[in-house]
Simulated scan of single mutants.
Amino acid sequence: MKQILSILSLFLVLCFAATAQNGPGKKDSAGNKVAAIKIAYLTSKLNLSPEEAQKFWPIYNKYAEELRKVRNDARKNNTPELEVEEKVLAIRKKYNSEFSKALPPEKVNAFYKAEKEFGTMLKKEWMERRQKKGEKGARASE
């Protein structure tokens, strides 16, 4: 377990170092940081063995890329939300069988739950930061 945490820590340091090279204010930097934090969160929640991780992450990367493409296309084309959610669900169903080849069923289920939890935490953090930023702006204008 310590070895996995060491590898994960090294990975996170490398991710943050790579994103820092983009410079402050770059959109990629924030997205890469969130992705690195999500990877750490999922790794922790799923407690993946090295063998499971080796099988899981390549599948996850394809899954995440398909979801990203659907969401980006929807944003560009102003696609109705219901249609986007149907596409997302289709991707999740497709990858459920792929994830099941790499992980036992309880970990696949835990993955979907952890992914949802991460999204909720991210949204909460964003809202809190937005609220604090608004409070600072209100104080500055007084």
Score class of each variant (00 low, 15 high):
V88C: 01
I4D: 08
N32T: 04
A35P: 08
N72K: 12
G31E: 04
K94F: 00
K55N: 02
G137K: 05
G25P: 04
D73G: 01
K38C: 02
E135V: 01
S9P: 09
K136Y: 14
V70H: 00
R130T: 14
I59T: 02
L103S: 05
V13I: 07
M1C: 01
E66V: 02
E106Y: 13
F118H: 06
V84Q: 08
I7K: 15
K136N: 08
K2W: 11
V34S: 04
S100P: 00
A74S: 09
S44A: 13
K113N: 05
E142C: 06
P104Q: 10
A17R: 05
V84L: 03
Y95V: 02
K101T: 07
S9E: 12
E85F: 02
D28I: 14
K69L: 01
F99R: 01
S29N: 10
A35C: 09
V70S: 05
E81W: 04
W57F: 09
R92I: 00
K116R: 14
F16V: 05
Q54K: 14
I59F: 02
E106D: 15
P104V: 09
K94G: 08
R129F: 14
K33A: 09
N78H: 08
K27C: 11
G134F: 13
A114S: 10
A40L: 09
